Computed example of a mutant assay.
Amino acid sequence: MSASPVGVFDSGVGGLSVLNALRAELPHERFVYFADTANAPYGERGEDFVTQRTLAIAVDLVERHRIKALVVACNTATAAAIHLVRATYPDLPVVGLEPALKPAVSLSGTRNIAVLATRGTLDSLKFKKLHASLADQANFSLVPCDGLAAAIESSSNAAIADLCARYMHAAGRFGTEPDQIDTVVLGCTHYPFIADELRRHAGPGVRFIDTGAPVALQTRRLLAAAATLADECDDNIATVLETSGAPQALAAAAARWLLQPAAQPAAAAR
């Protein structure tokens, strides 16, 4: 099993930010990444639909690629269906995502925190439980960023700039004074790609937090516990990229955002 790949999937290209962190933390591992671009973004879909897609993709990655671990690189899919994936494959290490509210609380000096996420994530029971568990420790400004993941998927720079300005304004006042927001949680894997645009509206001293590095560390822990960490990797074996949408769109995103090259994406119907 140590030579088997780690499966990673997202509704689209956002999970490439997590893949970057995984490849940095686990340089000897093989990865297969699936972007469900034909159905993106999940954050604006119903929970039943997201659950069905998550399970179908997990089954395919297990059966066709024989993955040794699965990273659900999507906050919305994690909230909707990760418990069902774990129940279906109890022996498979499965790592999910959730907005980094706990790290934000520990880092914030003003205890005022903005959470930028999809509506599907913010409306999920899993997120509501997390938020409620921390509500007495900080003030959270929850901002559903409708359309932002889709704008990133289409690389629409004008739309990205407009939406970033709109949602950062909706979050509140930023800064390091006691009544200002000093920490921003990027609650969607798409958002780290536009962090610089978001920072333009925050000013100095404001922290931005995403979940890529913690997810990569947790993946390492689970592989080590299962004794399936790869000792070495053939340099000629590239990360496999697949999509339910147009391969050329995923190729363009990979060229723009992946820190290491990957094989040319292939179409894979689900």
Results as ranks from 00 to 15, higher is better:
75 N>W: 04
60 D>Q: 15
14 G>L: 04
69 A>F: 07
16 L>Y: 13
15 G>H: 07
112 N>V: 04
58 A>Q: 05
135 A>K: 15
122 L>Y: 03
107 L>E: 04
34 F>T: 03
65 H>L: 00
124 S>F: 08
20 N>A: 06
72 V>N: 01
23 R>H: 04
92 L>E: 05
71 V>Y: 07
35 A>G: 11
52 Q>L: 01
125 L>Q: 15
80 A>Q: 13
103 P>L: 05
114 A>C: 13
39 N>I: 03
82 I>E: 08
54 T>N: 05
27 P>S: 11
48 D>V: 14
141 S>D: 01
65 H>P: 02
62 V>M: 13
134 L>G: 02
106 S>Y: 09
137 Q>S: 14
74 C>L: 04
93 P>I: 06
130 L>G: 02
112 N>G: 05
79 A>H: 00
130 L>E: 04
130 L>M: 02
123 D>H: 13
134 L>M: 12
43 G>S: 10
100 A>F: 10
38 A>F: 08
95 V>Y: 12
14 G>T: 02
41 P>A: 04
36 D>F: 03
31 F>N: 00
115 V>P: 04
77 A>L: 06
106 S>N: 05
117 A>L: 06
103 P>I: 02
92 L>M: 09
143 V>N: 09
18 V>C: 11
64 R>A: 12
88 T>L: 15
49 F>D: 00
124 S>L: 10
75 N>A: 12
19 L>D: 02
122 L>K: 01
